[in-house]
């Protein structure tokens, strides 16, 4: 597995683990525990989206000249994820367990199908088409949280 694909796929899996970990307190109705773990997940998720939107996607668009293709769809799905995150804040505030469970389910499915497209197509294309993968990767790693 090449540089960008390896780094970003590993980060996807890390985010999956953190979210899965947050499901335990939610299933048990432990709101304090859930809130803490959910926030940890959101921090990691938003960091991932920023790395892509500020470094990887512009690099891809510059290298390929394609601005209305895959990256546009990926950005739109990022917005959808942010919308779910905002709705979860309301569910946490009202301690609505069914709503929170439904939102986690919706978010997991959205993220997973999004990740699949990135891992199977976009990241391999980036590794293949970007002129300097190592530099792009270093820039992504230097994005502050």
């Amino acid at each position: 597995m090449s540089d960008i694909q390896h780094y970003m796929t590993t980060h996807h899996r890390d985010c999956d683990e953190i979210l899965a970990d947050a499901e335990s307190p939610l299933a048990e109705g432990d709101w304090a525990g859930y809130q803490q773990k959910w926030r940890a997940f959101v921090s990691e998720l938003l960091h991932h989206l920023t790395m892509e939107e500020e470094v990887l996607f512009p690099a891809f668009e510059q290298a390929t000249g394609i601005t209305q293709g895959p990256t546009m769809v990926m950005r739109s799905e990022h917005e959808q994820m942010r919308a779910f995150v905002a709705q979860m804040e309301q569910a946490i505030a009202s301690q609505d367990q069914e709503r929170a469970m439904g939102l986690v389910e919706s978010l997991v499915l959205l993220i997973q199908q999004h990740n699949m497209k990135e891992e199977q197509m976009l990241y391999p294309m980036c590794d293949m088409r970007l002129p300097d993968n190592a530099s792009t990767l270093a820039q992504m790693q230097s994005v502050t949280r």
Binding site: A83, F84, A86, Q87, E98, R99, M101, G102, L103, E105, S106, L109
Partner: peptide, 10 residues
């Protein structure tokens, strides 16, 4: 209308 979005189990 974003606030009207149903969740999975709704």
């Amino acid at each position: 209308g974003m606030g009207l979005m149903p969740d999975h189990y709704a």
